[in-house]
Amino acid sequence: MNSTEPATAKRRGPLGIARNWWILITTGIGIALVITLFSPFASPHPDGLERVAEDKGFIDSGKDPGYKIIPDYTFPGVENERLATILSGIVGVLIVAALGLGLGYLARRTRPAAEPQPPASASPGSGGS
């Protein structure tokens, strides 16, 4: 995509992020996706706050949200509950990974001009747009 860059510059992939960082990104998100495969085996017990709310008698103060998209980490319309949980995890991981990367990319684009930049990436057209 950015083949016009000088050969000395770091090869860049999408979002102007160097290729070697994309290896870390895909590995890291891959690890997160593997973790979601185990999500059906998470402890079904009530969590800390829920346990305290039950024991201390204020659990009934809780209100259901007025709408549902993927409630209780169960992908709607999937019969198999384990599969529904894993699917919801995959969807969530991909959404937050995209948000994190996107906001990080915006932070790179909007960093102050005073920030010293490597000369190779200061050339016009290296921003990937």
């Binding site: 979002l15 992020i17 960082w21 994309w22 870390l24 990104i25 890291g28 998100i29 690890i31 997160a32 996706l33 973790i35 979601t36 185990f38 999500s39 998470a42 402890s43 079904p44 017990h45 969590d47 980490y73 949980t85 995890g89 969530g92 991981v93 991909l94 937050v96 990974a97 995209a98 948000l99 994190g100 990367l101 906001l103 990080g104 990319y105 932070a107 790179r108």
Partner: peptide, 19 residues
Amino acid sequence: TAPLMGVLAAFIFAAQMMN
């Protein structure tokens, strides 16, 4: 920063599902 933000968001979301 940006690569780690993406990876950490993904890892933390997945880890939060693992009660």
